[in-house]
Measured scan of single mutants.
Amino acid sequence: SYYEILDVPRSASADDIKKAYRRKALQWHPDKNPDNKEFAEKKFKEVAEAYEVLSDKHKREIYDR
């Protein structure tokens, strides 16, 4: 789930989600993982997609249904 990707509970606040996104984006940024760039790019995209949905109140409500 998007919550698992960002490592936050379903009850996470918008601020918690933003902090988790920043932490995970740094962790999986391809430039930070030169030895495993392809895998890092995949993870980085997953993190971005999760944040896009969970950071938008309307999209998150739909996702949580």
Score class of each variant (00 low, 15 high):
1 S>V: 07
1 S>A: 08
2 Y>S: 02
2 Y>W: 11
2 Y>E: 01
2 Y>H: 06
2 Y>D: 00
3 Y>L: 01
3 Y>M: 00
3 Y>F: 02
3 Y>V: 00
3 Y>K: 00
4 E>I: 08
4 E>P: 01
4 E>G: 06
4 E>Q: 12
4 E>R: 07
4 E>K: 09
4 E>Y: 08
4 E>M: 09
5 I>W: 12
5 I>Q: 04
5 I>S: 05
5 I>K: 04
6 L>Y: 01
6 L>C: 01
6 L>I: 03
6 L>W: 00
7 D>C: 13
7 D>N: 10
7 D>E: 13
7 D>K: 04
7 D>H: 06
7 D>M: 07
8 V>F: 00
8 V>S: 02
8 V>C: 08
9 P>D: 12
9 P>K: 09
10 R>K: 13
10 R>V: 12
11 S>P: 03
12 A>I: 02
12 A>T: 02
12 A>W: 00
12 A>C: 08
12 A>L: 01
13 S>V: 04
13 S>P: 05
14 A>H: 12
14 A>G: 09
14 A>P: 12
15 D>M: 11
15 D>L: 09
16 D>V: 07
16 D>E: 15
16 D>P: 01
16 D>G: 04
16 D>S: 06
16 D>L: 07
17 I>A: 01
17 I>M: 04
17 I>S: 00
17 I>V: 07
18 K>R: 13
18 K>S: 11
18 K>A: 13
19 K>I: 13
19 K>F: 07
19 K>N: 15
20 A>L: 02
20 A>G: 05
20 A>E: 02
20 A>F: 01
20 A>S: 05
20 A>C: 04
20 A>K: 02
20 A>R: 01
20 A>I: 01
20 A>Q: 05
20 A>D: 00
21 Y>H: 06
22 R>C: 14
22 R>Q: 15
22 R>Y: 15
22 R>S: 11
22 R>A: 15
23 R>T: 14
23 R>F: 11
23 R>C: 13
23 R>D: 15
23 R>E: 15
23 R>H: 11
24 K>W: 06
24 K>S: 05
24 K>T: 04
24 K>Q: 07
24 K>G: 06
25 A>N: 06
25 A>M: 14
25 A>G: 05
26 L>E: 15
26 L>T: 11
26 L>Q: 15
27 Q>F: 12
27 Q>R: 07
27 Q>E: 13
27 Q>D: 09
28 W>M: 04
29 H>F: 07
29 H>I: 05
29 H>N: 11
29 H>A: 11
29 H>E: 09
29 H>P: 02
29 H>G: 10
29 H>M: 07
30 P>Q: 06
31 D>L: 11
31 D>P: 03
31 D>A: 10
32 K>L: 15
32 K>Y: 14
32 K>I: 10
33 N>E: 04
33 N>G: 04
34 P>L: 14
34 P>Y: 08
34 P>W: 13
34 P>G: 09
35 D>T: 12
35 D>C: 11
35 D>V: 10
35 D>M: 11
35 D>Y: 09
36 N>E: 07
36 N>C: 14
36 N>G: 06
36 N>I: 12
36 N>M: 11
37 K>P: 14
37 K>Q: 12
37 K>R: 15
37 K>G: 06
37 K>F: 05
37 K>V: 12
37 K>M: 12
38 E>Y: 07
39 F>I: 10
39 F>Y: 15
39 F>T: 08
39 F>P: 03
39 F>L: 13
40 A>I: 05
40 A>E: 02
41 E>S: 12
41 E>A: 12
41 E>P: 02
41 E>R: 10
42 K>Q: 13
42 K>G: 08
43 K>Y: 09
43 K>S: 05
43 K>I: 10
43 K>H: 07
43 K>C: 09
43 K>V: 09
44 F>E: 03
44 F>I: 06
45 K>D: 06
45 K>A: 14
45 K>L: 12
45 K>V: 07
45 K>N: 11
46 E>D: 07
46 E>W: 05
46 E>T: 06
46 E>S: 05
46 E>K: 06
47 V>I: 15
47 V>A: 10
47 V>N: 02
48 A>M: 15
48 A>F: 14
48 A>N: 14
49 E>K: 11
49 E>Y: 07
49 E>P: 00
49 E>A: 08
49 E>T: 08
50 A>W: 01
50 A>Q: 00
50 A>F: 00
50 A>R: 00
50 A>G: 02
50 A>I: 02
51 Y>C: 05
51 Y>G: 03
51 Y>F: 13
51 Y>P: 01
52 E>Y: 13
52 E>T: 07
52 E>G: 10
52 E>F: 11
54 L>K: 00
54 L>I: 03
54 L>P: 00
54 L>S: 01
54 L>H: 00
54 L>V: 02
55 S>D: 05
55 S>G: 15
55 S>C: 06
55 S>F: 08
55 S>V: 09
57 K>R: 13
57 K>A: 15
58 H>D: 13
58 H>W: 12
58 H>E: 13
58 H>I: 14
58 H>M: 12
59 K>S: 08
59 K>Q: 11
59 K>W: 06
59 K>A: 11
59 K>I: 04
60 R>W: 02
60 R>I: 02
60 R>Y: 02
60 R>G: 03
60 R>L: 02
61 E>S: 08
61 E>I: 07
61 E>A: 12
61 E>L: 10
61 E>W: 07
63 Y>A: 03
63 Y>Q: 03
64 D>L: 02
65 R>F: 08
65 R>E: 11
65 R>Y: 07
65 R>N: 14
65 R>P: 04
65 R>T: 11
65 R>S: 13
